[in-house]
Amino acid sequence: MSGWGQIGAILRKDLIRELRTRDMLVSMALFALLAMVIFHWAFTVRGDTDLTYFTGGMLWVTFVFAMLLGLNRSFAQEKDEHCLDGLLLCPVDRVTIFLAKTVGNLVFLLIIQAVAVPVFVLFFVEGGFLEGLPAFLAVLLLADLGICALGTLLATISMNTRSRDLLLPILFLPLIVPLLVAATSATTLVLADGAGVREIGGRLLFMLGFDAVFLVVAWGTYDFAIGE
C-alpha cells in the first residue's frame, strides 16, 4: 500500500469509528455553541456593547478549547482499547500515522466549524460577511492546520504520560499563542473592519510559516513522541 493509501486507511478507520458513536463531534459542537453564548454574556457589559472587535478572540478561543476536547478524546480511545498498539504493529511509517491523525483532527475541526461558524455569524457579525469570506476562509484553514499539527504531536506525548488529558492544555496553549495572535487579529480585521486577503497578507504569511515550521518539526520528532 502506498503512503497515501495508508494515510487514507487510518483516516477512514478514525472517521468510521467517530461516525458510529459521534460522541466526540457532538460534545465538541455543543461546547463551541455554549462557549459563544457564554462569551456573549461575559462581554456584554451594557445593553449596547459592540462585540464586533471581540469576534476574532471569541472565535479562536472557542475553537482552540473545542479542539483540546477533541484531541484528548481521539487519543484516549486509541489508548484505552489498545488500538494504538495494533496501529504501531502495522508495517506503517510513524510519520504516516502522524499525517493521518493530523488530517483526521483537521476533518473533525472543520466539521465543527461548519456548524459553529454560521451560528457565530448569526450571533455576532452584522452583515458584510460574504464579501470577507475568502479572507476569512484563508485564516480559518491556515490556523486550523497549525492547531491540528501541533495538537496531534502534543496529544501523542501527553497520552503516553501519567496525567494524560491534564497535561495537554499546559503544553499546547503556550506554544499555540503566536498562531492565535495572528489568527485573532486577522479574523477581527476581516469581520470588524472588512479587510480583504491583501490587508491581512502579512498575517496569513506568518501563519503559513508557523504551519510549515511545526509540520516539519513534528515530522522530525513524531518517531520519538509515539514511542516504541
Binding site: 501541533l150 504531536l153 506525548i157 503516553n160 504520560t161 503544553l171 506554544l175 515550521v213 511545526f214 518539526v217 520528532t221 520519538f224 513522541a225
Partner: peptide, 11 residues
C-alpha cells in the same frame, strides 16, 4: 519527551 518538548519550545 523532555527533549522533544525542549526542541519545540525553543523554536
Amino acid at each position: 519527551y523532555a527533549a522533544v518538548f525542549a526542541v519545540i519550545a525553543f523554536i
